[in-house]
Simulated scan of single mutants.
Amino acid sequence: MRIRFLVPGNVRHGSGGNKYNAKLAEHLNALGATVETVTVDGDWPVGSPADRQRFAQALDGGTTVIADGLVASGAPEEVAGAVQAGTKVWILSHMALADHHDLEAKALAAATGIICPSMHSAAELQARHGSLDITVATPGAEPADISEGSHPKHIVSVAALLPNKSQTLLIEALSQIKDLPWTAALIGSEEAAPAYAAEVRAAVEHHGLQDRLSVTGELTGQALQDQWRRADLSVLISQSESFGMVVTESLAHGVPVLVRQGTGAVEALGHSGAGAVWDPKEALGGTLRTWLTDHALQESWRSNALQARRGLQRWESTARTVLDALEAPPR
């Protein structure tokens, strides 16, 4: 099967959506499909008339297209035109658009099919637009070396510095437990929202945490692996997450995770007991204090993370789910 995979050109940091798209394309190829990934530049999710024309041209010429929802959901006329011309257009909706409800509804209705990376994101889409036929293809996880941990305990938060990711809230919480031994690292791009990244750095200085909390920027390769090797706890307290691939990445290293209630990260953590779901009504500093001072809790979370590591889904399974949906006869 030949597949053209259309991805947005205006998300340049290491987002979960970008990583999902790249891994899905890689493993569809491994299963025998021929995937052509095309980056569509534009001011998405709606774009200018010229942007949408560029998108329409990218839709032309393939019998099967997977289009990232950030591009496709704001361009229903282009999706409908391609489908009417005989192209199968599947919208991969990582997360419902915050705005542009009507455009998204029309695009989803016009598409050949819809793919979501989690039950959480599928439910959000259906809550906005009613009953939809959605294929859920949850992310896989790459095999990884087991964390060695650190003394004192090392906390990591792996996410681009964005207001949604709530790094300033984590800094505030850490400032409340300075009496305990710990180190921490905020690992993620500072380019996506420079003003917020400046707020994050200012908060670190305001609370006098420069010697204990590092803001590393986006890390890859050995530098990132060194952080995972040292990690004892991973924290993902975004206000919204479609899934939170860093959760399964953490578990692949045997590192327990603290996630925020009401987000897709809860689905990623599952019922493993490899960490906890934080209720925003509770003090985050208190939750971290409990973990840092309760050695039995630390051992329990760590043991459960190592157990969860053995059962993580691989990307081949994700790609197989998508390929089966694309190859199935129309419903």
Score class of each variant (00 low, 15 high):
174 L>W: 01
197 A>M: 05
131 S>F: 05
144 A>M: 03
140 G>Y: 05
228 W>D: 00
162 L>V: 10
217 G>F: 00
239 Q>R: 13
205 E>H: 13
129 H>C: 07
157 S>F: 09
163 P>D: 09
143 P>K: 07
150 S>R: 08
222 Q>C: 06
150 S>V: 06
229 R>A: 14
132 L>S: 00
234 S>E: 09
235 V>S: 04
196 Y>P: 02
208 G>V: 11
214 S>F: 10
131 S>D: 13
129 H>V: 07
150 S>W: 02
148 E>G: 07
227 Q>R: 14
188 G>I: 01
229 R>K: 15
166 S>R: 15
209 L>M: 15
203 A>E: 14
226 D>Q: 13
131 S>C: 02
226 D>I: 03
194 P>K: 11
229 R>S: 13
188 G>D: 03
213 L>M: 07
205 E>V: 14
132 L>N: 02
198 A>F: 04
228 W>N: 00
136 V>E: 11
150 S>P: 00
154 H>N: 01
132 L>M: 05
182 W>V: 01
183 T>D: 13
189 S>L: 07
177 I>N: 02
178 K>H: 10
170 L>N: 01
179 D>K: 13
165 K>P: 08
156 V>I: 15
177 I>T: 03
197 A>V: 05
230 R>Y: 04
161 L>F: 11
145 D>Q: 10
193 A>S: 14
191 E>M: 10
227 Q>L: 09
237 I>C: 06
157 S>W: 12
144 A>Y: 06
161 L>K: 04
187 I>Q: 01
235 V>R: 06
127 A>P: 04
214 S>Y: 11
202 A>V: 12
213 L>Q: 04
196 Y>M: 06
236 L>W: 12
141 A>F: 10
137 A>D: 04
128 R>H: 11
229 R>E: 10
128 R>A: 14
202 A>T: 14
194 P>S: 03
174 L>C: 01
174 L>H: 01
215 V>M: 12
190 E>T: 15
135 T>D: 03
209 L>P: 00
185 A>V: 07
186 L>N: 00
233 L>D: 00
221 G>Y: 09
141 A>K: 07
180 L>P: 08
153 K>Y: 09
169 L>K: 12
205 E>D: 12
165 K>Y: 05
169 L>C: 02
186 L>W: 12
161 L>Y: 01
218 E>Y: 03
139 P>D: 08
230 R>T: 05
185 A>M: 06
